[in-house]
Amino acid sequence: MIELHLLILAMVVSFGFVFSYLAMKEHDLLKALALSSVQSTFFALGFYILAAPDIVLAYLAIAVGAYTALVILAISKTERFEVGE
């Protein structure tokens, strides 16, 4: 039965990896931030699966809420597109 938990965990980390890779490759910072907040949402599910409700509460408020808002603020005050190599 514990396999179900671990299966969801494996799914979560796989999605997280894919989305963080895409976030790294993306040159539009707003899109990169959106992709990384998808990763954050998946990780929140991961913490939830791993039986850590305290972390879920803190992590959601930070990673989905305050951090995203902060970086959007930073993007809006700086530039939106990353200059390529």
Partner: peptide
């Protein structure tokens, strides 16, 4: 090379380490 991008990537790294700990 973009500073905001660096911040985003730093967070991704931190998340991964936190998950490992849990």
């Amino acid at each position: 090379s973009n500073m905001v991008k660096k911040i985003i990537m730093l967070n991704i790294m931190g998340d991964a380490i936190n998950m490992l700990f849990i």
